[in-house]
Amino acid sequence: MSANVIIFHEAGDIAEVARQLQGKGQIVDSEGLAHISPYLTEHIRRFGEYSTLELGLQPEAYGPHLNVDFGPLRGDGPPVPRGYGQAA
Score class of each variant (00 low, 15 high):
Thr52Gln: 07
Leu33Glu: 08
Leu55Tyr: 08
His9Ile: 08
Gln26Phe: 12
Asp69Thr: 13
Glu60Pro: 03
Ser2Tyr: 06
Leu33Asn: 04
Gly63Thr: 10
Ala61Asn: 05
Arg45Asn: 14
His35Ile: 03
Gly77Val: 00
Glu49Phe: 09
Val68Ile: 15
Asp69Ala: 15
Lys24Cys: 06
Ser2Lys: 06
Glu16Cys: 01
Gly85Ile: 09
Val5Phe: 01
Arg45Pro: 00
Val68Phe: 13
Ala15Thr: 06
Ile6Glu: 07
Asn4Leu: 07
Ala18Asp: 03
Gln86Arg: 15
Phe70Ser: 11
Ile6Val: 11
Leu40Ile: 12
Ala61Phe: 03
Leu73Gly: 04
Arg45Glu: 14
Tyr62Trp: 14
Gln20Gly: 01
Leu53Pro: 00
Arg45Asp: 13
Glu16Leu: 11
Leu66Trp: 09
Val28Gly: 04
Val68Trp: 10
Ala18Val: 02
Glu54Ser: 13
Asn4His: 06
Gly75Trp: 01
Leu55Arg: 14
His9Asn: 09
Ile6Lys: 11
Lys24Ile: 02
Gly56Gln: 13
Gly12Lys: 09
Asp69Cys: 13
Ile14Asp: 03
Gly23Leu: 03
Ala88Cys: 05
Gly83Gln: 10
Phe47Gly: 02
Gln26Met: 04
Glu31Lys: 12
His65Gly: 02
Gly48Thr: 13
Asp69Gln: 11
Gln26Thr: 02
Gln26Ile: 05
Thr52Glu: 08
Gln58Lys: 15
Gln22Tyr: 00
Arg74Thr: 01
Leu66Ala: 15
Ser2Glu: 11
Phe47Asn: 15
Phe8Tyr: 03
Pro78Gln: 05
Gln58Arg: 10
Leu57Cys: 04
Gln26Val: 08
Gly77Ile: 00
Leu55Ser: 14
Pro81Met: 12
Leu66Lys: 13
Asp13His: 07
Gly75Phe: 01
Leu53Trp: 04
Gly12Leu: 08
Gly83His: 09
Lys24Phe: 02
Glu16Ala: 12
Ile27Ala: 07
Gln26Asn: 04
Ile36Leu: 15
Ala88Glu: 14
Glu16Tyr: 07
Gly12Asn: 12
Ile14Gly: 00
Glu31Ala: 08
His43Met: 11
Asp76His: 03
Pro79His: 02
Leu66Pro: 01
Arg74Pro: 00
Pro78His: 05
His65Met: 09
Ile27Asn: 06
Met1Asp: 10
Pro81Glu: 13
Arg82Asn: 09
Gly12Cys: 08
Arg45Leu: 08
Ser37Asp: 09
Arg19Trp: 00
Glu10Trp: 00
Glu10Pro: 00
Ala3Lys: 15
Gly23Val: 02
Glu54Val: 08
Ala88Gly: 14
Thr52His: 13
Gly71Leu: 10
Asp69Arg: 14
Glu16Pro: 00
Ile44Cys: 04
Gly63Gln: 15
Arg46Met: 05
Gly25Gln: 02
Asp13Trp: 03
Tyr50Trp: 06
Tyr62His: 12
Gly23Phe: 02
Ala88Ile: 09
Gly12His: 06
Tyr84Gln: 13
Pro59Val: 08
Tyr50His: 12
Leu73Val: 15
Gln22Asn: 07
His65Asp: 08
Val5Thr: 11
Tyr50Glu: 08
His43Val: 12
Pro79Glu: 13
Asn4Cys: 03
Leu40Gln: 14
Ile7Gln: 09
Asp76Leu: 06
Glu31Val: 09
Ala87Trp: 13
Pro78Ser: 05
Gly23Ser: 05
Ser37Cys: 06
Glu49Asn: 11
Gly48Gln: 11
Arg74Tyr: 00
Gln20Met: 05
Pro59Ile: 04
Ala61Val: 12
